[in-house]
Computed example of a mutant assay.
Amino acid sequence: MARTKIHVGLEIGTSKICMVVGEVKSDGSVKILGVGQSKSVGVRKGEIYDFPQVRACVKDALVKAEDASDVEVGSVFLAVTGAHIQGVNNRGSFRLPDGEESIEQEHVNEAKEIARSVAIPQDHVYLHHIIRRFGVDGYEHASSPIGLSGKTVDSDFHVVHGIRSRIENQIKCVREMPLDVDDLVFSPIATAQVALDREARERGALVIDIGGGTTDYALYLDGVIEATGCIPVGGDHITNDIHLVTGLPFSKAEILKVREGDASGDPARSVGTAKVVDEKGFSDAEVKRQLLNDIIRQRLEETMGLLLSRLPAGAMEQVGTGVFLAGGTSLMRGFGELAHEVFGRDIYRPEPPELSGVQASFKDPQFTTALGLIRYAQIVESERAPKRGLLGRLWPFSR
Rank of each mutant, 00 (worst) to 15 (best):
V194T: 11
L196D: 11
V233H: 10
A200C: 10
H243R: 15
G247R: 01
V245E: 01
I242F: 03
T239V: 02
V233T: 15
H237I: 06
D182S: 13
D222L: 09
A205R: 15
D236S: 15
D182P: 01
F186L: 15
N240V: 00
V245Y: 00
T191H: 11
V207L: 03
D241K: 09
R198N: 09
T228L: 05
R198D: 13
G213N: 08
P249D: 11
D209Y: 07
D236R: 14
R203S: 14
P188C: 05
L244T: 11
E202S: 10
K252V: 00
G204D: 06
T214N: 10
P249K: 14
V224R: 12
F186K: 12
T246L: 01
D209R: 10
V224C: 04
V224P: 01
D197N: 15
K252P: 00
Y220R: 12
V185W: 02
T215M: 12
G234V: 02
V185M: 07
G223I: 12
I242M: 09
T239L: 02
L196N: 07
G204C: 07
D216K: 13
I208T: 08
A190L: 05
V194S: 11
L196G: 04
T239Q: 03
G235P: 03
D241E: 14
K252W: 00
R198M: 07
D209A: 12
D241F: 02
L248N: 04
G212K: 08
D182V: 14
T239M: 02
T214H: 11
N240S: 13
H237P: 08
E226P: 00
D183W: 03
G223T: 09
V207G: 07
G211H: 09
G235V: 00
I238R: 07
D183K: 08
G247P: 01
E202W: 00
T239A: 06
S251W: 01
G212A: 14
H237F: 11
L184T: 14
P249L: 03
I225Q: 10
S187P: 03
E202G: 13
Q193W: 07
I238P: 08
G234T: 08
T246H: 06
